[in-house]
């Protein structure tokens, strides 16, 4: 077999959510789930988009509504295989990106396998959102299960401020 070299590409990012998604993330920081409502068709998008996909119209920051953190599971998948490989340690990363970037970048990696990702339709939204479903009662998870958001202690304005959704019935 010919030589194989192991190397990696490590890049720090600072993505711009823009005002619409930014407002949603700001809401998560306050442990509140919000959606944006299209001026034309009235659909409520959670999470919000910059554009209504049906009307192709810009969504407005003025049209945000608070939505209850409860909904229904419309699909889910159990991930058993860890395809992300081993997570790099902070020491390893510090050889590749600057110290300032390491401090600012929470290593919000995917959870340990097995874990469940679900499409959740919140009661007051017209779109689905993707998030984790966790809990001791996972054997009861099925299509149509009712779930409720559970928050992290410390929130920073990130989708993972919601720790996961828990089955309520």
């Amino acid at each position: 077999m010919t030589k194989i070299s192991n190397w990696d590409i490590t890049v720090p990012y600072q993505w711009t959510p823009g005002p619409v998604l930014g407002t949603f993330l700001g809401g998560l920081r306050e442990k509140t789930i919000t959606g944006v409502k299209c001026n034309s068709c009235g659909k409520v998008y959670v999470p919000p988009q910059d554009l209504c996909r049906d009307c192709l119209e810009d969504m407005q920051v003025e049209n945000f509504v608070e939505v209850k953190p409860e909904g229904t599971v419309e699909g889910f998948v159990k991930i058993r295989q860890n395809f992300f490989g081993e997570r790099p340690s902070k020491e390893y990363l510090s050889e590749r990106i600057s110290p300032a970037d390491i401090d600012q970048h929470p290593l919000l990696w995917f959870p340990e396998v097995p874990y469940v990702v679900a499409m959740i339709k919140l009661d007051e939204a017209d779109t689905c959102m993707l998030h984790l479903v966790k809990g001791a009662d996972m054997d009861n998870l099925k299509m149509g299960s009712r779930v409720r958001a559970a928050w992290k202690e410390e929130t920073i304005g990130h989708i993972m401020d919601i720790d996961s959704f828990k089955i309520t019935e």
């Binding site: 070299s5 590409i9 711009t16 959510p17 407002t23 993330l25 920081r29 306050e30």
Partner: peptide
């Protein structure tokens, strides 16, 4: 409505295995 978040931070880490092929290995 809320103080918007201005950034989403993330570090993208992708490990690779590069094949040298016969000549470069030699």
């Amino acid at each position: 409505m809320f103080e918007p978040a201005s950034r989403v931070m993330h570090t993208w880490y992708v490990p690779y295995k590069w094949s040298f092929g016969q000549r470069a290995t030699e």
